[in-house]
């Protein structure tokens, strides 16, 4: 099994109902770079529409037979991934190097993400890769206003894919992009309808992969500091700290914050100058779940400040900033 990575990256492809997840998946699977990708799709309803629309169905695909993924997460999703893993170990399926999961349009991404980390078998063989969220350029803004699921799906994305831009007018697209930049300022945005795109850049360049690339840190916090952190509802803000950060104190603070306010912290991403470490440490969390911290190769430039970007639902930047500084003895 020399070809199989020690931790197989798992990509979640999410997005609201009708936002083009299956179209994206079909485009991705046509890409030669993803020939080693196994796919789990969620069959929603009796028709199994997603299944029939998908161009490529091979023996590495396991259909989840029940309805909503998030309700069956601890059972069927973990069982489906374990089954794939065991079949790969026995040589019954090709040695896939990546796993993509397409969620239902109504699924909350959090329990899907937590399964890989919570399952005692899976967490030794799989790790999370990028979360890719499709957003419908025609209906996206209306869905954000009416359906909280769709806002959460956009907020947790590592990559945002705009679909149906050929059907929406330019003003609507601009307004949607502005809305997305407020919800999730640092996720790169791809327009699906407008020509070729790199499947690799959507799925492969994740935070963990950054540990092996010295320049990766440069791309982590694009535009995040342009937000002022005010406003009700879902919004993003950035905090920065001079000097070195006490890792133990930071761990106590973040675990305490997520215990009490995890539902409101849709996402936290940070690059910390940790006392005793020459290279930055990247932390990355979604609600109550924090990924294992990544030890990066090096700093992207001469700026040694620790930076944290939060995407929150109803928390104030001032309160979070004051709390962090008090816990780290910086008040």
């Amino acid at each position: 099994m020399a070809d199989v990575p020690a931790f197989t990256p798992v990509n979640l492809i999410t997005g609201f109902l009708g936002s083009g997840k299956t179209t994206l998946l079909r485009r991705l699977l046509d890409d030669a770079a993803l020939v080693d990708t196994a796919v789990l799709i969620n069959e929603f309803g009796e028709i199994g529409l997603d299944h029939h629309l998908l161009g490529r169905i091979d023996e590495t695909m396991v259909l989840l037979p029940s309805g909503c993924l998030c309700c069956t997460i601890r059972g069927e999703l973990s069982a489906a991934i374990r089954d794939l893993h065991e079949r790969r170990e026995r040589g019954e399926v090709p040695p896939f190097r990546r796993l993509a999961i397409e969620s239902t349009g109504l699924a909350d991404p959090f329990p899907i993400l937590s399964t890989v980390q919570a399952d005692p078998v899976l967490r030794h063989h799989f790790r999370w890769g990028n979360v890719v969220t499709t957003v419908d350029a025609v209906n996206g803004r209306a869905q954000f206003e009416r359906r909280r699921e769709s806002t959460k799906q956009a907020a947790v994305a590592d990559r945002l894919v705009l679909t149906k831009t050929d059907l929406a007018d330019a003003a609507e697209i601009e307004a949607l992009i502005e809305c997305l930049r407020r919800l999730n300022p640092s996720a790169p945005l791809v327009r699906l309808a407008e020509g070729p795109f790199s499947a690799d850049s959507l799925l492969a360049h994740d935070l963990f992969a950054a540990a092996t690339r010295a320049d990766a840190a440069r791309h982590l916090f694009v535009d995040a500091e342009t937000n002022d952190g005010h406003g009700a509802g879902v919004h993003a803000f950035a905090l920065s700290l001079d000097g070195v950060v006490d890792w133990t104190g930071f761990g106590l603070w973040l675990t305490m914050l997520l215990n009490r306010h995890g539902e409101k912290v849709l996402r936290v991403k940070g690059m910390l100058n940790v006392a005793g470490s020459d290279a930055p440490v990247a932390v990355h969390g979604v609600q109550h779940l924090v990924h294992p911290p990544v030890h990066m190769m090096g700093w992207p430039d001469d700026d040694r400040r620790s930076r944290l970007v939060f995407i929150v639902d109803g928390l104030e930047k001032e309160a979070v900033d004051r709390s962090l500084r008090a816990f780290l003895g910086r008040a």
Binding site: A6, Q117, A118, P120, R123, F208, A211, T212, G251, T255, V274, S277, V281, V283, G285, V290, H291, P292, P293, V294, H295
Partner: peptide
């Protein structure tokens, strides 16, 4: 759950992971 919870503040040492 058997096998501990693998919390991020106690991450198992492996390449690329800070712990």
């Amino acid at each position: 759950v058997l096998g501990g919870d693998g919390h991020w503040t106690d991450a198992a040492p492996r390449p690329g992971i800070f712990t």
